[in-house]
């Protein structure tokens, strides 16, 4: 029960950190702009290439739209444990957390969940915006399945993906405890790697052999496939198949992440490194 209270308090801290500097509506709007721009850029690149190559396909446009939205969403909240530790060392928030008798895990889980909720709202707003903006730009409709069921399945996929995203977040957090330099760059690496290896923009078969096989089994890849099965192909059986794979991969990643973080935290407590800021 006290873990739940810690998590809820941490969600609130995360929101306070993200939105207290301004009107929450303005803060949310500002956070919606980058994913819209990012999806539009990827869609235009596809349109430009396929139009001039004479192979434009609206289904592929929808494929890229969903993929680009989702990789940005995953990147937005999976990096939170890393950020909470790196920033928390400088603002002394993390010092307060580790001084408490508990592990920092509930705090980081709460921060991640808070960011997931904000990112899910901006994701839906961005989805609506690009769904309305892209057709007049390209003179074509986007074949998305817009039904209550497809949106419910899409929402469920977002929730299941929390396992994998939190898992990778804890892995990065384990690193951030000891890091004093490179941790600020990690989010851009995660976002960039997801762009290439999660089938966000193109099928993983475009990657060279071994990389393609690794990308093929990532829980993020399965999650994006499940979301597409719900929103584009209206294929419920494929949806549950991909979602199941995503959940299994996510659980493995979460277990590995929690284990790594617990070990890193214990080691850092023992060596007195938890609030080290400079190498």
């Amino acid at each position: 029960m006290s873990n739940v209270r810690s998590i809820l308090a941490s969600i609130w801290i995360g929101w306070y950190r993200d939105f207290s500097w301004t009107n929450p509506l303005l803060g949310l709007s500002l956070r919606t702009i980058p994913p819209i721009a990012s999806v539009m850029a990827a869609s235009i690149v596809y349109w430009w290439g396929s139009f001039h190559a004479g192979v434009f396909d609206p289904n592929r446009l929808a494929y890229i739209m969903i993929g680009a939205l989702l990789y940005a969403h995953i990147a937005a909240y999976s990096m939170i444990p890393n950020l909470a530790i790196a920033e928390g060392k400088w603002t002394f928030v993390f010092t307060q957390v580790y001084m408490s008798p508990k592990s920092a895990s509930p705090y980081l889980a709460g921060r991640t969940l808070g960011s997931f909720l904000s990112s899910a709202v901006t994701l839906f707003l961005a989805l609506i915006a690009v769904y309305l903006l892209l057709p007049p730009l390209f003179g074509t409709s986007i074949p998305l399945v817009v039904t209550p069921l497809s949106f419910a399945l899409f929402g469920l996929a977002l929730v299941v993906n929390i396992l994998a995203s939190m898992g990778i977040g804890f892995l990065l957090g384990a690193y951030a405890i000891f890091a004093t330099k490179f941790e600020w760059a990690l989010p851009t690496y995660i976002s960039g790697l997801l762009m290439i290896f999660s089938e966000a923009l193109f099928p993983v078969t475009f990657l060279p052999g071994p990389l393609s096989q690794i990308a093929n089994v990532l829980p993020f890849t399965e999650f994006i496939r499940a979301a597409r099965a719900a929103m584009i192909y209206n294929d419920v059986s494929s949806y549950f198949y991909f979602l199941g794979l995503s959940a299994i991969g996510g659980l493995i990643l979460l277990f590995a992440g929690l284990l790594a973080f617990r070990r890193a935290e214990n080691r850092a407590r023992r060596l007195g490194l938890l609030d080290r800021k400079v190498a």
Binding site: A42, V45, Y46, W48, G49, S50, H52, A53, V55, I64, K181, F182, W184, A185, T188, Y189, S191, G192, L193, M195, I196, A200, L201, F202, P203, F206, L207
Partner: peptide
């Protein structure tokens, strides 16, 4: 601090690779 190059190159490199692969996937 040579590591700084590693810090700054992440975003442009991966985005550029992803967009290049996206262009290539269209055949152009």
């Amino acid at each position: 601090e040579p590591l700084w190059v590693v810090v700054t190159i992440g975003f442009p490199l991966f985005t550029s690779l992803a967009m290049a692969l996206l262009y290539r996937s269209t055949g152009l």
